[in-house]
Amino acid sequence: MRVDLFDFDLPPELIALRPARPRDAARMLVVAGDAPFEDRSVRDLPGLLRAGDVLVFNDTRVIPAQLEGMRGEARIGATLHKRIDLRRWQAFVRNAKRLREGDQIVFGADVTAVAEARFPDGSWTLAFAGDEPVEVLLERAGQMPLPPYIAGKRPTDEQDRSDYQTMFAARDGAVAAPTAALHFTPELIARLDEAGIGRETLTLHVGAGTFLPVKAEDTEDHAMHAEWGRIDGATADRLNAARAAGGRVIAVGTTSLRLIESAADETGTIRPFEGDTSIFITPGYRFRGIDGLMTNFHLPRSTLFMLVSALVGRERMQAAYAHAIGRGYRFYSYGDSSLLLP
């Protein structure tokens, strides 16, 4: 499909630079079948779902993967994207034309790395020096990797260390937050429990590739970056049992959705999964493992806007976004939410 079919105009003032406070005070647009759009709040979620439904959260934890350093006199920026092994990461590099294989980058705070090799997409393998775990080095020298539409408007600060982390964050490895879950609070979870709505967690370490623009003119020519994920057997069994009993599996975020769909077979049975996924969902895709999605508002021409268009229909999604823009919803990572129930 043509990528320009997924374009829309967004007033820049609707890009959220800070999250709602409290988190569950964010607005939520409900898109349910052919029913009229509903302007609700995230706090309304318990009444919008049914007892027996299951929300699926991503428990990945964002690491401070944004680094600023020097290669000699040249300033180098690096955003870690995907772990290769204990000491090596694939990274997107700013000012990469100044970098050569074997160059050492000094990031400060006794953190250095060697640029080992360049990937065809322009990213680099960075090998970190020393014996300390890379996560320890990043805590010392790194910053939270805010998406460019936020970082380009204001500097990262200490508040982002907590703001850009969900309450479910448990497993280090993401370089972007599973932002749909940023809206949840202990109080909201307690109300969901009271309503008989279940919850499960899986792990997908979100990569920086989620922010890359689609440069191809046709979706067939776009290559997705792989991300590592895991669903254990017990979790898969409980999700399958919930659906068999008439409950709906509602993915909280496109990251949870993509991993569930990667794990589901042709019959819709969710299987245990561990490994890389580069699933790319566009209109025409047949969803197998999920029955709904809670997600924030995405960038025009992005793979994530293509995904939500696949779930409820491109024209329906364009109309929903036009509705949200007209009513001043806040967009992107720190913005408001939507509940999509096809």
Rank of each mutant, 00 (worst) to 15 (best):
R2Q: 14
F8D: 08
P11W: 06
P12D: 15
P12E: 11
P19T: 02
P19I: 04
P22V: 00
V31D: 00
D34Y: 03
S41A: 14
R43V: 06
R43G: 05
P46L: 11
A51I: 06
G52A: 03
N58L: 10
D59L: 04
V62L: 04
R75D: 12
T79E: 07
I84R: 12
L86S: 15
R94M: 05
R94K: 14
N95D: 13
A96Y: 08
I105N: 09
D110T: 04
A113F: 03
V114I: 15
V114S: 06
F119E: 13
W124Q: 03
A129D: 14
E135V: 04
L138Y: 01
P147Q: 09
G152A: 13
P155K: 01
D160M: 10
T166E: 09
A169H: 10
R171A: 13
R171G: 01
G173K: 00
F184C: 08
E187Y: 09
L188K: 11
I189T: 12
I189L: 15
I189V: 15
A190N: 01
R191T: 11
A195P: 07
G196F: 08
R199G: 10
L202S: 10
L202A: 07
L202H: 07
V214S: 08
V214C: 11
A226G: 14
G229T: 06
D232C: 06
A236Q: 00
A241S: 08
A245P: 06
A245Y: 02
A245E: 12
G246N: 03
R248S: 13
V249N: 09
I250Q: 10
G253I: 10
G253L: 11
E261N: 12
S262D: 08
P272V: 01
E274A: 15
D276K: 12
D276V: 00
T277R: 09
S278G: 13
S278Y: 06
S278H: 13
I279V: 15
I281F: 01
R288P: 08
R288T: 06
G289C: 06
G289W: 03
I290D: 02
I290Q: 07
N296M: 00
H298M: 12
L299C: 01
V308E: 06
S309E: 05
R314D: 02
E315R: 13
M317E: 08
M317A: 01
Q318D: 06
A319S: 14
A322T: 07
I325L: 04
Y329T: 05
Y332M: 14
D336N: 09
